[in-house]
Structure formats: C-alpha cells, structure tokens
Design a protein around this nucleic acid. Sequence first.
DNA 1: CGGTACATTGAGAAATTTCAAAGTTGGTGG
DNA 2: CCACCAACTTTGAAATTTCTCAATGTACCG
Lengths: 253, 253
Amino acid sequence: MMFLNSIAEPAGGIAPYYDALKPDESPCETCAFRDLNFCGALLGDPAQASLRSRHRTAPARQNIYRAGEPIVGVMLVCDGWAVRFVQLANGKRQILSVVMPGDLVSPNLLFETNFAFSIQAVTKVRYCILPFADVRARICESPALFDVWVRMTAAEHQDTDRRLVDLGQRSAIERIAALVLHAMTRAEARHELQNEEFPFPLSQQQIADCTGLTPVHACRVLGSLRKKGIFHIDRGTVKIADRSELLRLGSGK
Amino acid sequence: MMFLNSIAEPAGGIAPYYDALKPDESPCETCAFRDLNFCGALLGDPAQASLRSRHRTAPARQNIYRAGEPIVGVMLVCDGWAVRFVQLANGKRQILSVVMPGDLVSPNLLFETNFAFSIQAVTKVRYCILPFADVRARICESPALFDVWVRMTAAEHQDTDRRLVDLGQRSAIERIAALVLHAMTRAEARHELQNEEFPFPLSQQQIADCTGLTPVHACRVLGSLRKKGIFHIDRGTVKIADRSELLRLGSGK
DNA sequence: CGGTACATTGAGAAATTTCAAAGTTGGTGG
DNA sequence: CCACCAACTTTGAAATTTCTCAATGTACCG
C-alpha cells in the first residue's frame, strides 16, 4: 500500500497545528507523488530553488484544522488521506471532499486565511504548509503554473458539481458506488490500483458522512453491494469484483 | 420589479446561441447592476475603452446552453434569472446554481470552452458574452481584477460547499428555507428587497430540482411554510412573514 | 485479557416519493 | 370578451427509502 499505516488514536483531539511548525526538512525532494499534482508544478524541476515549506504529521482521526482558525499558508497533503468536513450543531457532519496524497486541500480557497470547514486525518497524514506569498508569487510569475492552478480549480469545481448531483438526485447505493468509483479513478492515477484492489481507509461513519446517509444505512448498502458481487471493503482496502457494474451504478448512466 | 417580465414560451427549445451574435450594442454602459459584481470590476470605469461584447436575449424557459456545446466566451447574465443544471438520463434534473443579474455563469470555469451542465432561462434573460482572450488579458494585467476574480471563485466554492451540506444533511423544509434565505440575501445586495418582498421567479419544479426534492413534496413543504407564517410565494414574488424564523430554519443553526 | 471503536442486524417510525386526479393560472385565438 | 389549452399547483393515498433506537458481534490496541 502506498500510504502510511492507519493508526487508531483517541478521536476528536485538535492538533495545535500552527505551533510546532518546524523549519523545512524538505521531504518534498523525495515525494512519491511529486509529479502527479500541484506539488510538482509548483515546486518546479528539482534544479530550481526550493520553496520554503513546513511539514507536519498527524495521526489517524486527528483534527488537523478546525473551522475558523487562522491559516498560516497553503495546505498540501503529502501522504495519507484527509477529509474536509462541516460539523453541524445537531451532531451531523458532512464531508465536503476527500483529500488524497498530492492534493491541495482546496485549490479554490488557495489564498483564504481561514476556512468554514474543518479538516480531519483519515489515516496517518503527512502534510505541508507553504507560505501564501511564495505560492502567489510563483503563480503570478509563471503562466504555466497559473494554468495548472486554473485547471485545478475548475476540476475541483466540476467535482463538487458532480457531488451536488449525487446528493440531490441519486439513491444511497448509487452514491456509495460513485464514491468508490471516484476513489478508484484517483487510485489509478496514483498507480495504486493493483489486481483490482486499492486503498480505501474510510470508515463506514465517514462513508456515511460523505454520502449524506446514516452509518447504519451505509452499512446495509455496503452489505448489499457485497452480496451483489460488485465490491467489498475490508481493512482499509477495497476489492472490485464487477467493474462494469460499479461503473454503471456509480457513473449515473 | 427589477427584472424583465417573465414570458411563457413553449419549453425545451434550444437557442442557437452562438449564431446570431451581433456586434455590441453596449447595454453594459447603462446596466443597473454594473457596480455590483464582476461586470463593474471587469469593465472598469466608464472612461476606459469598453470590452468587445455581444448581447443576447432569451425568453423564459428557453435553454440558453446545452451541456457539451462549444462556448465562444465568458458568459455574464445582465438581467433576469437563469439556472445551471444537469439533466440525467432518467429524467431527473439537478440545478447546480441560480444565476442572477450581474453574475458570471460560473467564475470557477471562466476559461473552460465547454461545460458539463446546461443553462436555462428562468425569466426572460439578457446575457452577454465576452471573448476569453480579452477577459484573460484584463485579469492578468490588473492585480485588483485578479483579486476580484479570486474572491469570486472562492465565494462560488463556499456556496457550493454550503449546498453540499444542505443536500446531504438537511430536511426538505430546511433546504427550501435555505434557498429562499439565500435568494433574499442576494436580493438585498441588489436593492430589490422592499417591504419584505422580492422577486423569486422559480417554479415549484425548479425549486424541487434545486433542493433535490420531488415537485409534489416541494409543494407540500411550501404549503407548510405558508401555514406556519414564515413566507409565501405568489406569482414570482416571495413575501417574508417571519424573518427570524426563516433565518433559524434556513441557516442551519 | 479487556476495552473501545467499529460493524452488523432487527424492528418500527418517519420522511419522501410515486401515482393519480382535480383545481388554477395565464396566454392565445376566435 | 370568451373559451380553450398548456403548464403549473394542490391534494389524497399508498409505496418506498431512509432513519432511529437498541442490541449484539467483531477487530484491534495496549
């Protein structure tokens, strides 16, 4: 598996994420996903002077960022999975997006100094914070990088549009299939799909919070997807059993 | 009322929107919303040389744009309401956003040459198409305009995040309240809120497509909101009867 | 070995959809 | 001006999906 082991940890803790920022130890230089995403484009070829950056690690289930806190820079996930989510007063939670290795936390909000959502580590996560000014300068001076960023914001937006359609118009089984299908696509892009298996560390509670369902109902639906021989999730890995049926269900055709 | 009269028209027609582009007649110079939105910032002060632009009008219910067609430029709604929506194969429809006077159709997709969604006029609509290259040049040469655009994309994104939470976690009555509340906020910004009334030309079918409900259920919920004395919609106008209750329901507190 | 979070199952309740029919509205043409 | 048509709204009743509550089973960590 290409991401760090999931380490269960007492939930709900808040990382004092903007203390404890240490000077750069530059794991960026050896990052496995370097060429896959904004990272690569941003950091440029290895010859170029590297950006100031600060890395941190958070254990699984820890809240990396809590809605409203000030943000010290652009956040980029290096390894592991995280989720952006909104916590409601009534205890409900909506996951807005799943952030995977190489992803900016939210390309559209690159220069915002605080967010309306929180961020939680799904697995153990390593992430990186780059100073706003440096990123902005680099985007402004490089039309190519500007284009990459514009494309990423467009992609993020198209993705949320897709999820709006899912949540508004599709049944529980279709939403869960769409979630897994989307994860599969992204796993493929990161070369993590082998033998129809790939990492999928979301708990049923998290799957439920993504799809707007109850964990109980998510469990039943996952059971029926397993019984139908479409896929099954076990210990943080999903095994696809019927790809074409998954495609049919999850792509909304 | 500050927008053009709604004119019923045989539904479902497709405007041949990129034929028939006439040279600019520049109604931009006299636009009522000029100073409210991207328009103003983009076109700059009246002294400045005006942008090449092309204006068109579409009757209510006409499809202005169909998913996948090539786009000739940046689309900006001058007057009337339109919706961005996705039409599914099974006949269902999800409205992604409501586009109001002064709005870019989708700031996040400013430079995309085709969209995955379609656009339909809600009322009679006047809109404007600006050449990509001109807009891009203007954004690149003006840091202030760049900032306005970045802020607009951030705002659009925060708005879709809010809607994700609505669709995923909130009940029918809360979603509809949120829709009306949001429209009220925007009406206020355009100075269209008078005597607790403002234009709200969406049909129940369109309200349903926005909120992920059935038109039948949307009708019942609107009925209950009326009976509870919160607001009622009549002939394209909504009258707010209990603002604080609307706020409580619609803001998800 | 025990504890805690996570997953599964059952049964009943609630929200929402579906189908069907009847009432309203506004525009059109005679 | 009236009658008609089409789209839109309202209402009822039954079906379906999803939720809630509650209990039991399971995996993993210390």
